[in-house]
Nucleic acid binder design. Structure first.
Length: 328
RNA sequence: CGCGGGGUAGAGCAGUCUGGUAGCUCGUCGGGCUCAUAACCCGGAGGUCAUGUGGUUCAAAUCCCUUCCCCGCAA
């Protein structure tokens, strides 16, 4: 089967790998977003999909848009029978949707109709969900609104973070697309419209989403920190005004018995992996991993040993700002 | 040439402004205390201070210059 793949980040690259390694499949091309035009020192950063494709001899296409005629010519030249999409980042216009005889299928990182959109994995963890998954679906002109083919549940463990869950879902996405290809080849594929009710939208992560809000319960702060690890990470502000990313933590429901002001550092431990206990609206979070501004990812113990933080410091409040107005 | 931080012992840092004995918190090794310990006490090892047989100086981790590398932000 002649397949054209479209996708961009890690999850998409793993999906491409699964499809590419599948018997009876010819990947005629990989469409991915253009290399990021800048980076530190003007570096170009190719997408994971592009890297995989180049390493495996798959032609790479990086159109700025699918809407103009330039891509239509490419599409006709590649002449795919099926288009497989995973986290490509663009809506497909009708002429693309209609071209392949077997249609366009997508692997989405949630159990639709929940978490349609750009950041379903992170949003599911942030919301404290215990189950998410991959939905294999046909694409239409809407945002993740097409008919479903199959859903693959995946539990979210307390030990999961954005990185581990993405890895798990990436494997499922690969499996899902291989199953879909088999079903299409066998003529047994089925499609079910999404329920009209229960849909939610998982907007992309904004800087505001990254800002740790210690006024929330410990569990919420914990969910936020792990959802955004390893990238882009939850972030707070040190008493000196510098940024501090929080990469690892665990909740201590009874860690703030005296009801200290949210953001207050209650305890620092510099032995071993160490930890930094920070008061929350309810309970406290024990931060165990951080990235100081201009520094590498390090354990809380290393950070404490460097004497950058001490009990009594208040996080999340810029110097001169009233701690009572931590909202907004 | 987008903005900024940094390269000092195995780890994280201080010291650099105001040149003049290489320090701190840990880890590690040895000893002690203890019923015992990741706790406490004592002692030791471990660093050409990223690079340049660079410049200035009586003297450079520190001031000036070179090159390389790392990281955060922004996209």
């Amino acid at each position: 089967m002649r397949i054209l793949f479209m996708g961009t980040p890690y999850l998409a690259a793993e999906t491409l790998r699964a499809v590419h390694e599948k018997d009876g499949v010819t990947v005629v091309g990989a469409v991915t977003r253009p290399d990021k035009p800048k980076g530190r020192g003007m570096k170009l950063i190719p997408s994971p999909v592009k890297e995989y494709a180049l390493a495996n001899g798959i032609p790479v296409f990086q159109p700025k848009t699918l809407r103009d005629g330039a891509f239509r010519e490419t599409l006709e030249a590649l002449d795919p029978e099926l288009i497989v999409v995973a986290a490509y980042g663009n809506i497909l216009p009708p002429y693309v949707l209609d071209y392949p005889k077997y249609g366009c299928v997508n692997a989405h990182g949630s159990l639709l109709p929940e978490y349609r959109g750009a950041a379903p994995i992170e949003r599911a963890i942030m919301d404290g969900k215990t189950v998410t998954g991959i939905t294999a679906m046909y694409m239409d002109e809407g945002l993740d609104t097409g008919d479903m083919i199959a859903r693959y549940p995946c539990p979210i463990e307390d030990t999961d973070d954005g990185g581990t869950l993405t890895e798990k879902l990436a494997k499922l996405a690969g499996q899902a697309m291989c199953d879909v290809i088999d079903a299409i080849a066998a003529g047994t594929v089925s499609r079910t419209p999404q329920p009209g009710e229960g849909s939610t939208y998982a907007a992309k992560i904004t800087p505001e989403d990254q800002r740790a809000d210690f006024s929330k319960p410990a569990r919420v702060v914990f969910n936020q920190i792990r959802a955004l690890n390893p990238s882009p990470s939850a972030e707070t502000v040190m008493p000196d005004g510098s940024a501090l990313k929080l990469t690892e933590a665990y909740p201590c429901e009874d860690g703030n018995p005296e009801g200290a002001l949210p953001g207050t550092v209650l305890e620092t431990v510099g032995k071993g992996a160490g930890r930094i206990l920070v008061a929350c609206g309810e309970g406290a979070v024990a931060v165990t991993g951080v990235i100081p501004s201009g520094k590498k990812r390090m354990s809380a113990g290393d950070f404490v040993r460097g004497r950058k933080i001490a009990p009594g410091d208040v996080l999340g409040v810029k110097p001169g700002e009233d701690p009572g107005h931590s909202e907004q």
